[in-house]
Amino acid sequence: MVLTGAIVNGIAVVGGGLLGRLLHRIPERIKDSVMKVMGLAVSVLGIQMGLKSASFLIVIISLVLGAVLGELLALDDQLNRLGGWLERRMGGAEEGSISLGFVTATLIFVVGAIGILGALDSGIRGNHDVLFTKAIMDGVMACILTTTLGIGVLFSALPILLYEGLIALGATQIHRFVSDELMNRLIAELTSTGGIMILAIGMNLLGLAKIKVANLLPAIVVVAVLVTIFE
């Protein structure tokens, strides 16, 4: 089934989050140390991905235009409002943590090339190995994030399912419109653009900045359009 990989990824996040929920009594100093380590690891991952570009000018233009569109659409505010709604539905438990956990985890799990590549592989070849690997990594990260950010992390499974599922479904027809050469170029620039967003998430986790990463998400669409035009 085309959606198998996306479904497994979502289940892994929920499972990891529930396990992290059981470990929530970890002392605050340990949680703080773990969060800093996560921030460092996410930052390094972002740097590695950011260097994949073959035309960094496209990445810069995409991020600038994406930031403008994101600010105009107030995506970060809307994502936080969705997190706040989840928080209210949960009875306001752990005030502030549900929204923060949902937004942070959603951005970490959704932004990046692995999900895109895995979903494309699921749709084009029916091979879910990439998404299964991502599911393991996301499950472990969800466990760690839940111990520090709370139960809101679990709700990030829904955006994962929608995001990867839609890409997988679209990929079943993508070979009709996109050549292999264009696809490789798209993947390289998407990887680099997503890597810079992941670096921003890492900086936020480390407390070095307060970047509204959700407002950068339109850059993913912009980079796809620009690469297609230039190609």
Rank of each mutant, 00 (worst) to 15 (best):
Leu206Ala: 00
Thr146His: 08
Ile160Phe: 07
Glu181Leu: 12
Val213Gln: 00
Leu166Phe: 10
Leu154Thr: 11
Asp180His: 13
Val178Tyr: 12
Asp77Glu: 12
Pro218Asn: 01
Phe177Cys: 04
Ile196His: 01
Gly123Asn: 13
Gly96Thr: 14
Thr172Gln: 12
Lys36Val: 06
Leu23Asp: 07
Arg21Gly: 00
Met49Pro: 09
Ala200Leu: 10
Lys134Val: 15
Lys36Ser: 09
Ile11Ser: 05
Arg81Lys: 14
Leu217Pro: 01
Thr146Glu: 07
Leu131Arg: 04
Asn184Arg: 13
Gly50Thr: 13
Leu226Pro: 11
Ile61Ala: 15
Met137Asn: 08
Val37Gln: 12
Ala171Asn: 07
Gly170Met: 04
Leu3His: 08
Leu45Phe: 14
Gly207Leu: 02
Ser55Asn: 15
Gly50Glu: 13
Leu199Met: 09
Lys210Ile: 05
Val140Glu: 09
Leu100Ala: 15
Gly195Arg: 02
Val42Met: 04
Leu226Asn: 12
Ser156Trp: 05
Leu162His: 07
Leu69Lys: 03
Leu22Asp: 01
Gly46Thr: 07
Thr193Glu: 01
Asp77Phe: 07
Gly83Pro: 04
Ala6Asn: 04
Ile114Ser: 11
Ile187Tyr: 11
Ala142His: 12
Val110Thr: 00
Gly15Asn: 03
Ile60Phe: 14
Lys212Asn: 08
Thr133Ile: 10
Met141Asp: 07
Asn80Ala: 05
Leu100Pro: 05
Gly112Tyr: 02
Ile60Ala: 14
Ile196Val: 05
